[in-house]
């Protein structure tokens, strides 16, 4: 299972694709037999990371968003969302609650929500090159594998 259980896709940074990205990752994650609550948590984190690419990484332009979801073992799910947009000058500051460069349309709570809905959130960013956000989430095993 390890290393081979993944999906990878890319899409243009149009907001209409947000719901597709959430649904695609959730239907792949269903393989781990998650609870509805665990699935909703994963969808939330995907939505936050993808929206950040659309709004911040590629402001006013279209770019490409890469998404990979991976089953690391029977109880660990990993998602990576990557862009080649503007990058984040100060990641530590960007992760603080209510920090936003997005003005009135944003609340600055995206990273805070990702952190509270996932177990681990890793952000790598280079100004002018892009950003990648990798998040892992433990899925509680409820049934034994057949």
């Amino acid at each position: 299972m390890t290393n081979t259980d993944y999906i990878k896709f890319e899409f243009p940074s149009r907001s209409v694709n947000e719901s597709f990205a959430r649904a695609a990752v959730a239907s792949f994650a269903a393989r781990l037999d998650p609870t509805l609550e665990e699935l909703a948590d994963i969808k939330t984190a995907v939505s936050e990371a993808v929206t950040n690419c659309i709004v911040h990484a590629y402001p006013g332009v279209l770019g490409t968003i890469w998404l990979r979801a991976r089953i690391i073992d029977e109880s660990t799910f990993e998602i990576t969302v990557r862009d080649t947009g503007v990058g984040i000058p100060d990641v530590k500051k960007a992760r603080e609650p209510m920090y936003t460069t997005g003005g009135d349309d944003r609340s600055g709570m995206g990273f805070t929500i990702m952190e509270s809905f996932m177990d681990k959130v890793k952000v790598r960013s280079v100004e002018g090159k892009g950003t990648s956000v990798t998040m892992t989430r433990r899925i509680v095993r409820r049934t034994s594998a057949v």
Partner: peptide, 13 residues
């Protein structure tokens, strides 16, 4: 059924 931080910003506005 679903909301993310964009919903938070909308409620605040």
């Amino acid at each position: 059924n679903f909301m993310d931080s964009s919903g938070i910003a909308l409620i605040l506005r």
